[in-house]
Amino acid sequence: MMFAILEQLAPLIIFLVLLAIGFGVGRTKERRHLKSLDERESQAREFTVDSLKRPPEGVVVREAFLCSGSIVIGSDYFKSVGASLKSLVGGRLGTFESLLERARREATLRMMAQAKQRGADMVINTRFETSSIGRMTGNNGLAASEIVAYGTALTLDRA
């Protein structure tokens, strides 16, 4: 009798467990990631990254090269379920906003790291590209996005 009820409830239990894991682990990871982003961004504050097409007036450029950074970020189970519910009524999907914002910041930092590693002093003309890999909502299929940040790294001659 007990067993029969349990068997009936099994899918629901699995669903709830996944939801709880997604919520718990996903939230912890997100918080940790945001903290690490904040730290690395404050360390890199003097390094100029902009989206202008030209180097600033008065600098002498020694070398220019392309640099890029990318990340594929996936949504957690809780966010995916939440989003598919939310998309019934429409409106902002705040959970995905923060997901993509985090990914974009991470991609920028990776791009900067690559530029720095090759001795650059600044990065100009930064562009972003976003593409979704699989679906962002729904329970089957993958919910992930790739973000690429790329720009031109410059090494400057200090006169």
Binding site: G22, V25, G74, D76, Y77, L142, A144
Partner: peptide, 26 residues
Amino acid sequence: RDLMAGLKNIVGGELRGYTELLAEAR
């Protein structure tokens, strides 16, 4: 890789396998 990524989709976060795959392809 797809299987691993599917599991990763429960907890969220970076899918490192895909990051590398796409970076390499690019």
